[in-house]
Amino acid sequence: MQRARRSLRSTVERALDRFGARGGGDLVADLALPVSTAAVAQLLGLTVERTGAWSS
């Protein structure tokens, strides 16, 4: 569970960094969707490379 928590925390931090670097954006498309997609993928045991198609 700790590994999952660290991974999700990293995903959230990257999404927030990108969001902030652009000066904002669409909260759902730029933050909620990538984070929730990563969380579900992690629960299913999928790699990050395989989740790209989900968010397109």
Rank of each mutant, 00 (worst) to 15 (best):
M1Q: 05
Q2Y: 14
Q2L: 04
Q2M: 06
Q2E: 10
Q2A: 07
R3C: 00
R3S: 01
R5G: 05
R5E: 10
R5H: 12
R6E: 13
R6Y: 15
R6P: 04
S7G: 00
S7K: 00
S7D: 07
S7V: 00
L8V: 01
R9D: 14
S10C: 06
S10W: 14
T11I: 02
T11H: 10
T11N: 04
V12S: 02
V12C: 04
E13K: 00
R14T: 11
R14F: 13
A15M: 03
A15H: 07
A15S: 10
L16R: 04
L16K: 01
D17N: 07
D17M: 02
R18Y: 15
R18Q: 08
R18W: 13
F19A: 04
A21Y: 10
R22A: 15
R22T: 10
R22E: 15
R22M: 10
R22C: 10
R22N: 13
G23S: 08
G23Y: 13
G23C: 04
G23W: 12
G24Y: 15
G24K: 06
G25F: 14
D26I: 00
L27P: 14
L27H: 08
V28L: 05
A29Q: 06
D30C: 02
D30N: 04
L31V: 13
L31R: 06
L31C: 14
A32C: 13
A32R: 03
A32N: 12
L33S: 05
L33C: 04
L33Y: 12
P34N: 03
P34Y: 08
P34A: 02
V35Q: 03
V35L: 01
V35R: 01
V35Y: 10
S36N: 10
S36Q: 06
S36W: 13
T37H: 05
T37Q: 06
A38I: 01
A38P: 12
A38F: 12
A38W: 14
A39S: 06
A39G: 10
V40R: 11
V40S: 09
A41R: 01
A41C: 09
Q42W: 12
L43H: 11
L43C: 11
L43M: 09
L43N: 06
L44Q: 10
L44R: 01
L44V: 11
G45C: 02
L46R: 05
L46W: 15
T47L: 10
T47N: 06
T47K: 08
V48Y: 14
E49A: 12
E49T: 02
E49H: 08
R50T: 13
T51W: 11
T51K: 00
T51F: 06
G52D: 12
G52L: 07
G52F: 11
G52R: 02
G52P: 04
A53H: 08
A53R: 05
W54S: 03
S55C: 05
S55H: 12
S56M: 12
S56F: 14
S56L: 04
S56N: 11
